[in-house]
Structures are given as C-alpha cells and as structure tokens.
Amino acid sequence: MEQAASIGHQPINGIDVYYEYYPNKASEKTIVLIHGFLSSTFTYRHLIPLLKKDYQVLSIDLPPFGKSGKSHHYTYSYKNLAQTVIKLTEYFKLKKMTFIGHSMGGQIVLNILHMVPELADEAILVCTSSYLKRSKLPLILLSYIPYFHHIVKYWFARTGVKKNLQETLYNHDLINEDMINGYLQPFLQNEIFVALTRMIRHREDDLPPKVLNQIKTPCLLLWGDHDKSIPLHIGEKLNKDLTNSKLIVLKETGHAVPEERPTEIYQYIREWCQAP
C-alpha cells in the first residue's frame, strides 16, 4: 500500500541533499535510485511511478546536481558521495535495499558495495561508468584559477543539453521540450559550475579490477547496445571483473536507458529482486 510521499531536503554529511522518498507499507524492500553525471532524479521520472507500487523508493539528487546543494566546501569525490548516500539511508533507517545506479551513479553504487557490503541485498548497474582515471594534473591545476568555472560553463553551453541528449538517446523521437527543460533547469545558475570545478579536483579513479573482484553483492548489469558514452565492451569487462554478476544487453538502446526503457528496467528489477 502506497503512503504519502516525503519530498524535500535534508542536511547530510555537510551538504543539503534533495530526495524523493515514497514509502510503501506493503513492501520491506527499498529501491534506492542514483542518477548519473549532469543528471538528477528527473532521469527516473518514468520509472518511479512503476516502482513505488511494489516497493519503497528513495531517489536522490547527488550533490551538486539537481536540487541538491552546491557547496564551496563539500568534497565531490566518489567516496564522499557514496558516504552521503549511505548516511541518507541511515537517516531513513532503511534496510533490505536494492541500489540502482545509472552511469556515474553506478560507480557510486560500486563504491557503496565496496565500503559497506552488508548494506545492499543486490544492485542493478545501468550503463555504469567504469575504469575512468582521475582528471589529468594540468586540468586539476587549471581548476584553481579564479573564475575557471566560467570555462566549465562555456564548455557546457557549447555542448548543449539537446546535443547531449542526441548523443545519449538511440531514439531521438523521444526528445521534446519537457525533456530538454528538465535537464537544463539545474544549470541555469552559476553555483553548479563552481561545484563542478571542485568535482574536477576531487573525483578519484574508478574502482580498479582488484577491488571490483572483491565485491560479492549480486549485480545485474543493463546495457544499451548503442551506448556511445560508455560502450558495451565496458559492460562486458565489468561483468567479468565482478564475481557475482549478470549482463543483459538492450537492443536499439543508447546510454539513457531510464529514458528509453523504463518498463523493461522495471521488469528486470522485479525479476532480479525475486531471484534467490
């Protein structure tokens, strides 16, 4: 049975975190949704209505994205972002969780599974960013130049939301004004670019194979066969490096799987969560 949603902000780990929490007394299972780079809870807007009928759902805007805080003091490392997610689940006293991460969010999930393996019953990794190295030292040093965030903003403006969506979606017919405006909204203020500049400095390497080998949590990998951002061969390598994983390839699908295949994701979640 669905209950009234709790949607708002909570100070966690030294920063203001936006969340959407949908309780469900009929389910002991909580699905925790973590979005990717330059995204937000908005990316799960088609999936959440399906999930909240069967599960409790917690969707989080990772700082500095979406409606979460853009701090000049927060450390935007994967480890600290993972710690922030962990502390928010503790705030809600959640147990029996399934973590779902898309793109960069998948890398945050992997960090959580490595740091606190007992926290999740299973995980679903959707086109997860993997094997990326830290930014090059010259770029990190440049990020300390005053007003460097204007360069970051200029890069984003040149790339543009619509062009990014065309790169991440296989089916361009899905792109409309609501989608463009939804992804653009968090980037209309300068604070996000100051925070992204700090992320350039703080983001560490993705987890290496020797650490991935240690993760025993059952992981379902969902990948688009036309993913240009994180190609399928990355998913195949990740599937080999995780010792308890399964890879499913979605045909005629790009990187933005939650946009293109929410119903299919929902079905795979139900099957995976019920698997012994």
Rank of each mutant, 00 (worst) to 15 (best):
F42A: 05
N111D: 11
D173A: 14
D61H: 04
P146L: 07
T253K: 10
S130I: 14
P117F: 07
P218C: 05
T98W: 03
S129W: 07
K52Y: 03
Q3A: 14
P23A: 10
Y183T: 10
A157Q: 14
Q274N: 14
I12W: 01
E191V: 01
T217H: 11
G69N: 04
N164K: 08
I100P: 01
E177Q: 15
I108R: 00
L38S: 08
Y21L: 14
L222H: 14
K136H: 12
V161P: 12
Y147D: 09
S129E: 13
I265T: 06
R261P: 01
R261T: 00
Y44M: 12
V152S: 03
G105M: 01
F193C: 14
L174P: 08
I31R: 02
R270S: 12
V152H: 02
I215A: 02
S245C: 11
L47A: 12
Y22Q: 11
E167P: 00
V126M: 15
I234S: 11
Y266L: 01
N111G: 01
E260F: 07
P117S: 07
E122D: 15
S135R: 11
A120K: 08
S143G: 07
I230N: 10
Y144L: 10
H149C: 03
A82H: 01
Y131V: 01
L184D: 12
N80R: 13
E264S: 02
I180T: 07
Y147W: 08
G235A: 04
T197N: 14
G8M: 07
T43H: 01
E264L: 12
L110Q: 09
S71A: 08
I248G: 02
P262V: 05
I12F: 03
L38Q: 06
P209T: 10
K67S: 07
A82C: 04
K96I: 02
L58F: 10
D16R: 15
V109T: 11
S245Q: 06
L238Y: 02
Q10P: 10
P138K: 07
Q83S: 08
S68K: 04
P64C: 05
S245M: 11
I265G: 06
I230F: 05
M199N: 08
